[in-house]
Nucleic acid binder design. Structure first.
Lengths: 283, 283
DNA sequence: CTTGACTCTCAAGCGACTTGAGGGTTTATA
DNA sequence: TATAAACCCTCAAGTCGCTTGAGAGTCAAG
């Protein structure tokens, strides 16, 4: 029969925490003075507390620990809990590891350039996307602008099926680059509009569905002249964070007006590269 | 100028979260309708949100992210934040990894014995400990009981310096085992009392300080006959969790009465083995 | 003009504690 | 024996990053 303060010292658990465990019913003192409310513990409670600390150390919630302590579960149920927890921890491990890589990449970047990067790359899942597009070999990157005109013309009255708040004066456009390495000329690119439903194809304009994918993405704000930096930033990130490019990259503009003017400084472009984690390949 | 719902879809962040970011000042809409309170966002806010998501992905708190977004910090400060975070993540990584090992160990144990273990092993730091002890080669493990009598006698009037609530009828005792491998006889063991201050030595009774250490510990409740199981459990744990024994183990009894009676079924014994993580050796 | 989808604010809830205010009890010392 | 220091009590609120829900107002299509 010892008081809470001494028990606290023996088991190295703060007094407040012991009171909390009492409150939630996890570890009740063997006796509570009816008049003063003083809590009294005994050495015989050590095994129970040890179990609490052990399970807490494995990351179980107090509620789950309560279940285990109630002794009402079979070994089979216990196995189930452990397997579930195992899965959770594995996932958490992957997350923490990628955080570590991410922080290290940022540190490297800041060591090299001695300034905080303009571009922030994040990983996001995108859903399958229906598009109307024209693909062609272009003399240079800027030439993609002309392709948008072609798509626009080919759609005709179906422009209203293009995604965006006001299709006439601001839709969502998408430029794709199929080259697997950087090229100044003979760029294999495409211009596309996002669709809410299928429209008839016409000429070089085809309709197809871009697949769902995990994307490394960043946002470029300003004219296209400096968009190369954004691509560079994203490629550096992909390398430093242990990913690999697995398809054509996309340049997405929300709320473009037609015709496209590549030097508009108010443009906001999201650049996406489909990626997969190295070492998780499905080949 | 788009409404919160559509912005939410584009950036894949829940509406409630956007409202929350508005509330805490992390991302204010570019415009709020004075009459309806409707929030309006624009594509130009994408870079800011991207930065928020990127930093959140590295595990920074919203408060820290707010600081970064305020642009008021130098690259040097940013480096500092990143290094700090790096240290935190490394620690978290170690913790998650040991959780994974721990869960796997428990799963193995339950697969093998098909019951939930009686013993829960935890890791704890113990502080340096002043003890009065008698060390000797003993014919068997139970013989340590006699040594306690010798310590008790050697302390004489200084018994009052022994730790525990009432030194006469219940003190804290400690049995040490210096063998590096299990022995049935010729056990190199010691019996000790914990002291609050130094007392004079007498005969075989010596006073010295046990070093601080990280301990793998468990609690045995009941007579000494079955204490072997507790040792076994702890040794299995040490192996499965990637630790190594680095010193003599301790058996600690809180609130022993003198003389020691080894078959008392109400005894509670904490068993500790000093350990270090394999791969973190200081040699 | 209705319907249904969307938006607003404000309050409370989550988990595992921690902190603090305000007040009673025990114990060691003067 | 008085008193100070150490210890104990309860209850309430704060932490973080949202999430959920109630109740009410707004907007766009049919």
């Amino acid at each position: 029969m010892i008081k809470i303060g001494e028990f606290s010292k023996v088991v190295q658990v703060p007094v407040a925490t012991l009171r909390y465990y009492d409150q939630v019913g996890l570890l009740k003192p063997i006796e509570v003075d009816r008049f003063t409310g003083y809590r009294y513990y005994s050495a015989s409670q050590l095994p129970r507390l040890h179990r609490i600390l052990a399970l807490k150390g494995l990351g179980f919630s107090l509620e789950q620990i309560g279940l285990v302590l109630a002794e009402g579960l079979t070994p089979e149920q216990m196995r189930g809990m452990l397997r579930l927890r195992h899965a959770q921890i594995s996932q958490q491990l992957a997350e923490v590891q990628s955080q570590l890589l991410g922080v290290e990449a940022r540190l490297q970047q800041i060591e090299k350039e001695d300034k905080i990067s303009t571009y922030d790359v994040i990983l996001k899942q995108v859903e399958p996307l229906l598009v109307a597009s024209v693909r062609a070999i272009l003399p240079n990157h800027s030439a993609v602008g002309a392709l948008f005109g072609e798509v626009y013309a080919a759609m005709g009255a179906h422009v209203s099926e293009a995604l965006g708040p006001h299709p006439e004066n601001g839709g969502q456009t998408l430029a794709l680059c199929y080259d697997t390495e950087f090229k100044e000329n003979e760029v294999d690119g495409a211009a596309a509009f996002m669709l809410r439903c299928r429209v008839p194809e016409r000429g070089r304009m085809k309709v197809h569905e871009l697949p769902a994918a995990a994307m490394a993405a960043t946002v470029h704000h300003g004219s296209y002249n400096t968009i190369g930096e954004a691509h560079e930033a994203i490629l550096t990130w992909i390398d430093a964070n242990g990913y690999r490019i697995v398809g054509p990259d996309r340049e997405i503009n929300l709320y473009h007006t037609m015709p496209i003017r590549l030097d508009d400084p108010s443009y906001v472009t999201e650049i996406q590269y489909p990626v997969e984690k190295i070492g998780t390949g499905n080949e």
